[in-house]
Structures are given as structure tokens and as C-alpha cells.
């Protein structure tokens, strides 16, 4: 029988994959995709907790509202982030994380 633990482990593994990508990859766009993956992993954990924390016999809809807000914020964040990446590409002609060194001490 599939329990909450299964969903939480899948969520944790997806988050870990995204984290590995954020640390290891150099391409800013792919780093960004991995960030989205981490957000989705958190959403999966929230949805799992929502299903298995019953309020009067129904799933806890406070958690699903939080998922809704997370998805909205993530969509706004993607739009702004990609605009920043485009602006960066215009000035540097590259999307490699190594070429952005303006704030380096």
C-alpha cells in the first residue's frame, strides 16, 4: 500500500536532484530549470500532507491553497528570471554562470 512516506521520499529525491543540478551545472538556464524542479518537489510534499491530514473527512485545503500560491509565485519568478537571463545574454553573449563576475571581490 502506498503511504505518505513514499510520496515524501519521492519529493525528497526530486528536491535532491534539483539541488545537485543547481550546484553542478554551469548553464544558467538549466540551473533555473532545476530551481523549478525543487519548487515542484516541495509542492508534492505539501499535496501529500494535505491528503493525509483530514479535516472533517476531507483533505486539508489550506495546504493545497499554499501549493496554488507557490505555483503562482513560481510562474511570476520564471517570467522575471528569464527576462534577466535575456538581458544578461545581451550584454555577455553567453549563459554560462562563470562569465558573470561583476560582483566578484
Amino acid at each position: 500500500m502506498i503511504s505518505l512516506g513514499h510520496y515524501l521520499v519521492v519529493s525528497g529525491m526530486l528536491f535532491a536532484l534539483g539541488l545537485a543540478g543547481v550546484i553542478a551545472r554551469r548553464n544558467i538556464l538549466i540551473v533555473y530549470m532545476c530551481l523549478e524542479m525543487m519548487l515542484s518537489a516541495a509542492n508534492l510534499a505539501l499535496a501529500g500532507f494535505s491528503r493525509f491530514h483530514l479535516v472533517n473527512g476531507l483533505p486539508d485545503y489550506a495546504a493545497q491553497s499554499l501549493v496554488f500560491f507557490t505555483i503562482t509565485v513560481a510562474a511570476a519568478e520564471v517570467a522575471v528570471g528569464l527576462a534577466i537571463i535575456v538581458a544578461l545574454f545581451r550584454s555577455k553573449q553567453s549563459v554560462d554562470a562563470g562569465v558573470v563576475t561583476k560582483l566578484q571581490g
Binding site: I2, L4, G5, G21, A24
Partner: peptide, 27 residues
């Protein structure tokens, strides 16, 4: 370091999940 951090995190999540009773809730 990316692989190391990811493996550590996944192991940690699995350990926490397996040690709590709430994780055994199912349909």
C-alpha cells in the same frame, strides 16, 4: 559536491521519513 549534497539530503529525508509514524498513513 553537487552529487554529495544531493545524496546526503536524500538519505536524510529517507531517514526522517522512516523514523516518523505519520509517514505510514495511507489511503
Amino acid at each position: 559536491s553537487g552529487i554529495l549534497v544531493a545524496v546526503l539530503l536524500a538519505a536524510q529525508v529517507s531517514a526522517v521519513v522512516s523514523s516518523t509514524g505519520i509517514a505510514s498513513k495511507n489511503a
